[in-house]
Design a protein around this nucleic acid. Sequence first.
DNA 1: CGCAAGTGTGAATCCTGGG
DNA 2: GCCCAGGATTCACACTTGC
Lengths: 376, 376
Amino acid sequence: MTKQVLKSRASARPLPLNQILAGDCIEVMNSLPANSVDLIFADPPYNLQLKGELHRPDNSRVDAVDDAWDQFAGFAAYDEFTRAWMAAARRVLKHDGAIWVIGSYHNIYRVGAELQNQGFWILNDVVWRKSNPMPNFRGKRLTNAHETMIWASKAESSKYTFNYEALKSLNEGVQMRSDWVLPICTGGERLKDKDGAKAHPTQKPEALLHRLLVGSTNPGDVVLDPFFGTGTTGAVAKMLGRDFIGIEREAAYRAVAEKRIARVRKLDSEAIATIRPKRAEPRVPFGQVVERGMLRPGEELFSMDNRHKAKVRADGSLVGNDVKGSIHQVGAALEGAPSCNGWTYWHFRREGRMVPIDTLRQQIRAEMAAEDGRPN
Amino acid sequence: MTKQVLKSRASARPLPLNQILAGDCIEVMNSLPANSVDLIFADPPYNLQLKGELHRPDNSRVDAVDDAWDQFAGFAAYDEFTRAWMAAARRVLKHDGAIWVIGSYHNIYRVGAELQNQGFWILNDVVWRKSNPMPNFRGKRLTNAHETMIWASKAESSKYTFNYEALKSLNEGVQMRSDWVLPICTGGERLKDKDGAKAHPTQKPEALLHRLLVGSTNPGDVVLDPFFGTGTTGAVAKMLGRDFIGIEREAAYRAVAEKRIARVRKLDSEAIATIRPKRAEPRVPFGQVVERGMLRPGEELFSMDNRHKAKVRADGSLVGNDVKGSIHQVGAALEGAPSCNGWTYWHFRREGRMVPIDTLRQQIRAEMAAEDGRPN
DNA sequence: CGCAAGTGTGAATCCTGGG
DNA sequence: GCCCAGGATTCACACTTGC
């Protein structure tokens, strides 16, 4: 049993969580409360030159195009479509929320420019580098071996979610880059109709959504996908303990997605949990180290290279070489640096060895965690 | 002596070939005859919009791109700038010509949309994946590890130049993809002032231009670079036997570029010529050795017993004693053998010693392992 | 001389909470 | 909103210095 309609926001209307909503995504999004979802993943139609696939927001069909003038009409119609769905998405998104949009060179430049025009703030563009792309059969161009994803917060001032440590961990301890090498969706993951044909022409690999959701959402966040298709976003969101809202116009895709997501089992919370960043640790004033007697007033601290020293004072400040202030301020002043992390800069002597004072902070934090009964 | 003013077109005005023209690129381009250049490479300002200073974790300051030429009032101003230079470039370009524009997420979406708006026809977007990008020091986003290049013909109907076989040969028999892994410009290639400071903040690597010009121009073609900077385009064009026209506003950049290009020696026509190789066993592409500058086109390779030699060409093929082909094919032909492992057969001279080219392959493999050995 | 260790640096939209 | 201060944060190379 998944919760279906639970979360309510400032708006009185509840969110239809973990459901696939039928209909045109613009209309459906406009029926949702404003400022209510944490992340949007959008995989809009790429088509500019494909005949008969492009519709205006009012569902009227755009005529096929092939000459230069009609090309312009094609772009104008696509831009209008983009503007409309993106504005609707923007309204639903929380101020601190973010959006991902995936596309190819056919549409991504229109999309990226419109994101900026609407006030979204691009955080990165990410290249999905396909390890097994389709070759260019006619040999007239380069193998089109990648797609582009744009990651943008709702505004420059948004406090977007970014799980830096989790992605670094996914990347064997090295900071995650903006180029992601992943195979396209094939084999058992690729959904098929009864007759064996692929259920959706552009099904995205779950690995892509996995990395994306781990990196830019937290467990319990609400992820909206206005072009849901066969539900890769929903499947991965469910697995990772995120809530999703899918919107899909085609009944056939909705049916496939429903079945698919029903089969997905949510990972247990231990598996979902990721490394907690240090920023999330409670702040410990250096004065507490002194108060608790872990360091005594008058004791001397040393920089790692032993070139600088300072004396601890009763109020938790330091004094060294005529400089007084916090552990950070004195360290910065002595080094002539713009800033300094005093916790890692200063060391005390114990049994002839130099120990960073950060070990004392970690001790205090461990005690605080034990008191709260909270896992560290 | 290079030819200076030779080619004339339908227009009576001659083209100022292999020169660096001073001034605003829009005015200068408008002074050139219409429909006269074969390729444009444009590296316009990215409009980075940097705010404060940034320091590395070791407190050293990042030398940011804060030059006046990258300052724009906003997107509207940047769009107007883009529209203007692109229209001027379009006028100068032959109907069957093409354009490359490089940028980052800050500007590339504006650029790509305007390309389409002006009627250019995007052929590919190419991702330059940097093997050694600057990290994201604060851990707030993904490492910005790539830049984007858009390749577009003047119109959908253009018969653009694409040397499929040459690029395939550079990639040792495998179709060239839309993602190119190349290091940023450092070391001896990076131009410095007298005081050791970098001469230009955003100098592009020659390997990038090498691949681009081999793939999308022919010898004798005219390449226009309206944002010439310190002249990477001109240097590579000259080496590869293409003519260039550079436009640069800053006198200091022009001076550096002049000196740089004067030092470049044009490869002989045999080295420049590209071939249609028969299918070679794909392994590590020998072309990468050339692209990365580990061996220069024109350099001679020798058999271990010194009885045979061959010359390296720009597309990674060899020519020796009227035999042309891959390192393996030429070795086999010269030995009268049914087959030959070119990697162990061929040697180059360094400091009087003969070194097998296989050491270079091992070097590349080590780098590739470092890049791809971990999940990206 | 070689190897190890240390230093410098690259198109970057790079912090956050409390008062 | 602003100001202030705590304190968190890096990868791949090339080059230099030291033993």
